[in-house]
Design a protein around this nucleic acid. Structure first.
Lengths: 355, 355
DNA sequence: TTCTAGTTTTGGATCAATCCAAAAAACAAT
DNA sequence: ATTGTTTTTTGGATTGATCCAAAACTAGAA
């Protein structure tokens, strides 16, 4: 066993470009071109190299490639509550879109902590990701967007946005969503409509509130009641009871998200009242569980899967062309009418048990 | 402007070890040691280097480091349905545990497709992740575990397991969970208890069925009815109606997961029956929504967050010590008694609106 | 046959870190 | 002052790919 033999078989046990080149009787560079599907390589050569790659069980080393090529085919995704089914669906959409392009994504759950978020973003920078999909944690410094810009890290904001335009953003038109809900309620005779939920200065809350105030004004309703709160089920539970104690009490409520709406329905039931009969309830997001509750929840569908997919596409486009004009993709929401708003009650049974 | 000046300021705009070394008046190697917190470096030197790092705004390049050091601080996570809140919670647990150790994770959603799963695993190999957390997609070839072993890619299986022991695994004791549920039902006088759901040969289903048969036998019940199905809400909806049409019909059902249980409750209500009164329903997983339904769902808590955390810990341990004995972490489930099993009905109001 | 134009292929430098054996510096003991 | 230890520091080799300018082939025309 000469030194040369050892060198070929032993070193770290890993097959490299060099080994394939030797096996196929070409140079390292040619093998590299084959791997990257370059049209420069002659057909016969390409086939021979492919055979050698198979024969030696070669595994491409993306880390090494990235070092020289400065493209990692990697993206960082930051959400603030992955346990929320809404984000689950969104991540599924992201995953599907990235997968098609050979990208993979790092996922982090900021738990709405700007510090955790910051740590993760720094780590992403160290890993040289090509871009970031960011659902900013509550209380994120608006300067963060500029910081990422300075880092030359393309960033697409999702669902919430901070900083000042232009930036890349993908989300849903929450304002329009609330408009739809209130239009529907007004058409069914409601005049006292309250809004429950949202507690800090983030864009998604502001947009909902704006939609609420705007619609109330547009329909010339005398009653306006906006109850701030965090956005858990318990908040909905407590809020509805508070509202019912007021006079006049609302005859309908639109909720920040479906969790709050579920809580509100539960609160009504605890008081012996029936959602949709004694008080209409409309949620936001249209999570899968909305169709399942009793009564089935009317909800503003915000299409999390599609939002995720669009955000991912936007990021890929930005990576291709870092200096192109920033883009905003804002999806149109839809009102899914079920039982809880009193419009269709149990008559419409086709809607209840969706898959 | 000499060539040297250009070389210092221009090249790709990125600060490297070399630049810091020059700035601090030490060698590349010393800087590297400082970055890795080596105790070899003298305190004064370390401080000087730290200052230079700050001054130049250096960003560690993990890709380059990994190339030589063969440790990427990176993990691959494969689940089959990230939109399911159960997996959301699990991923949150994984994330929390990894974060503490400076690890980040790639996430992929296999959508229960072995092909997608395979593609992702190959990509993970190319990215040289240090390990894999795998919830095997349905129909995964049991040989996959051996393949990963051959790839020298440490793999911890989660929730489901394939292949033959020994392997690393983290999950919940589904068998025991079903035992608990049936013990409880029997204690409350039920004698005809059915099980709904589970449709292919994966371990998590087998374990549940085993627990069911075992408990039925243990209590010497004459009635045994196991209804196979996929595990969506719709399946529960249909299954319960089928069961009620049989004679004798069951007086209680235990369901593969909470979705199926929700469906079963809905099915009962469609027939004008009340869950917990006319037929007891128990789910599995104790997702957040379980406490929210009406009636509130009794469920076998399977602790997804803890499972995720334990799986991540196991993986990190295996990476530290690739040849250590394989470990299985199996968490004990708990029965969360609420209204749907008839045991506590509306009397017990403390349980319903949990956060 | 020679020259040109086009098609393939190639070797050396490079990306940014770590490893390692050996050198240098600091300190203690003789 | 000399030697021996221990503590720090270092330069060159290495990791595995890509980039790029130049070299080596083809094939067709003069």
């Amino acid at each position: 066993m000469t030194d040369e033999t050892r060198k070929k078989s032993q070193p770290s046990g890993n097959v490299t470009l060099q080994d394939i080149a030797a096996h196929a009787g070409v140079s390292r560079s040619t093998v590299s071109l084959v791997l990257r599907e370059s049209p420069l390589v002659a057909k016969r050569t390409r086939e021979q190299v492919r055979r050698s790659i198979k024969a030696l069980g070669y595994v491409y080393n993306r880390g090494a490639a990235a070092l020289r090529a400065t493209r990692t085919s990697t993206l960082g995704v930051v959400v603030y509550d992955i346990a929320n089914p809404f984000f689950g669906a969104m991540v599924a959409g992201i995953d599907a879109a990235l997968n098609r392009e050979g990208y993979v994504s790092f996922l982090a759950n900021s738990e709405d902590s700007p510090e955790r978020q910051q740590r993760f973003l720094e780590r992403m920078r160290e890993h040289r990701v090509d871009g970031i999909l960011l659902c900013p944690a509550e209380g994120t410094d608006p300067a963060l967007v500029a910081t990422l810009e300075a880092w030359k890290l393309p960033c697409v904001q999702v669902l919430r946005h901070i900083g000042t335009p232009p930036y890349d953003y993908a989300g849903t038109d929450f304002r329009r969503g609330v408009n739809l809900a209130i239009d529907h309620l007004v058409a069914h005779g409601h005049e006292r409509i309250a809004f429950i939920g949202g507690h800090t200065e983030h864009s998604a809350t502001r947009e909902r509130w704006q939609g609420y105030r705007e619609a109330i004004a547009h329909h010339g309703l005398g009653y306006q009641r906006l109850l701030r709160s965090t956005v858990t089920r318990r908040d909905g539970f407590e809020a509805i009871q508070q509202l019912l104690g007021e006079s006049p009490a609302p005859t309908a409520v639109v909720c920040h998200n479906d969790l709050v709406a579920f809580g509100a329905m539960l609160g009504l039931q605890r008081q012996g009242l029936t959602p949709g009969v004694d008080c209409a309830v409309i949620g936001t997001d249209d999570v899968e569980e909305a169709a399942l509750s009793a009564p089935a929840l009317t909800s503003i569908a915000t299409h999390p899967y599609a939002v995720g997919r669009e955000a991912a596409r936007l990021a890929l486009r930005r990576i291709q062309n870092p200096d192109g004009a920033r883009e905003q993709v804002v999806l149109a929401p839809q009102l899914r009418v079920r039982e809880s708003c009193g419009a269709s009650l149990a008559r419409d049974r086709s809607l209840a048990p969706t898959p």
